[in-house]
Simulated assay, not measured.
Amino acid sequence: MFIAHSIEDLRAHLGRYDHPAFVPTMGNLHDGHLALVRQARPLGDVTVASIFVNRLQFLPHEDFDSYPRTWDADCAKLEAAGCDVLFAPRESDLYPVAQTCKVHPDPALADVLEGHFRPGFFIGVCTVVMKLFTCVFSEAKGKRTAVFGKKDYQQLMMIRHMVQQFALPIDIVGAETARAEDGLALSSRNGYLSAEERAEAVQLSLVLKALAATAKQGAFDLPSLEAEAMGKLRARGWNPDYITVRRQSDLQLPVAGEPMVVLGAARLGSTRLIDNLEI
């Protein structure tokens, strides 16, 4: 596996390939990330992953400094999963000067759900993804593909919208959420859970599954259903930010007959977990 720390080294190495398939990450990798790499492998002639903990998408009170950095383990996992190239830029390489030019996504999509509770989060996400795209795909001569997990559903919608708005010649592939045997969505933040919290954490996916089953039957008193779902979590000691049913296409309020998705975010102890389920 070739490891590039500078943009120049990355572009020089990728110049020999035509069709990169790219998986951006922030490191601290788990089986969900590796599933993205394995899905990307047949989609291009070189499989590229990145590890970069992006300061721009952390709010002042969030865990940028304490976000786990597991470099040696990450490299071993990526190589075993068949990654060909790892791009791991230093902050001074990706942001050599203050990043004052940023991508501001559509507020209708960016300021709801995660964007409501984490203001400015998607500006940081879109800005770094756009910059990573320019680093990875600048030498591509043919098809360009990037793989994102559906677990971060709103992020996936945001990236697709950004690619469409800027007419970027990149195929965005959404990969199914990887889950533990009990149904918990795999996440780097699961490592923050105590043993007791880990046993409880599956309740988020169970509450979403129950709400999805009810919504699928055509029950559309959604505010009451969503409030009931959040009440179930609160009764178990959770602090939910939202449990909601939205339209898959744009995360607006659903219309009968259109594909829907149930999304949830809730804090268990000090750990904030998110999950979703398409209907």
Rank of each mutant, 00 (worst) to 15 (best):
D63M: 06
H61R: 14
E139Y: 03
W71H: 12
C83N: 07
Q203E: 12
F220C: 04
F137N: 12
R69W: 04
I123P: 05
R160P: 02
T271C: 07
A265Y: 08
K216G: 15
A178C: 11
L233V: 08
V37D: 09
L59D: 15
L59M: 14
S6Y: 05
G44Y: 08
Q154R: 08
Y67I: 03
R234W: 06
L43D: 14
R267Y: 01
P107W: 13
P119I: 14
H61T: 15
Y95L: 10
S6Q: 08
A35R: 15
L156K: 00
A98H: 11
S205R: 04
S205A: 14
I279F: 10
F166Y: 15
K216D: 13
Y67H: 04
L36A: 06
A201D: 03
V261I: 14
H5I: 00
N54D: 02
P259V: 06
H104A: 09
M260P: 04
G124F: 07
A167P: 00
V245T: 09
R179L: 03
L132A: 05
K209A: 15
L233E: 06
V103H: 12
F122V: 09
V255Y: 00
I170E: 13
R189V: 02
G15N: 11
D72H: 11
R41Y: 09
V46P: 08
F22E: 06
Q165H: 04
V147L: 15
A49E: 01
A4W: 01
L34M: 11
R144L: 01
V128A: 07
L184C: 09
T177R: 02
L56N: 09
V48C: 00
D152I: 01
L225F: 10
F87A: 04
D111A: 14
A49I: 03
A235H: 01
L233A: 00
M162I: 04
D93V: 15
L251P: 01
N28M: 00
R267E: 09
K232M: 09
A212V: 09
K143S: 15
D18C: 11
P240E: 10
H104P: 00
P254W: 09
M1G: 14
Y153L: 05
G269F: 07
G149K: 02
H30T: 09
S194L: 08
H116W: 13
I51G: 03
D72M: 03
D65I: 00
V112D: 06
L86D: 09
E181N: 11
Q154A: 07
F117C: 02
V129A: 13
L186E: 09
E62D: 13
A12C: 05
L225K: 10
L211D: 04
Q39L: 14
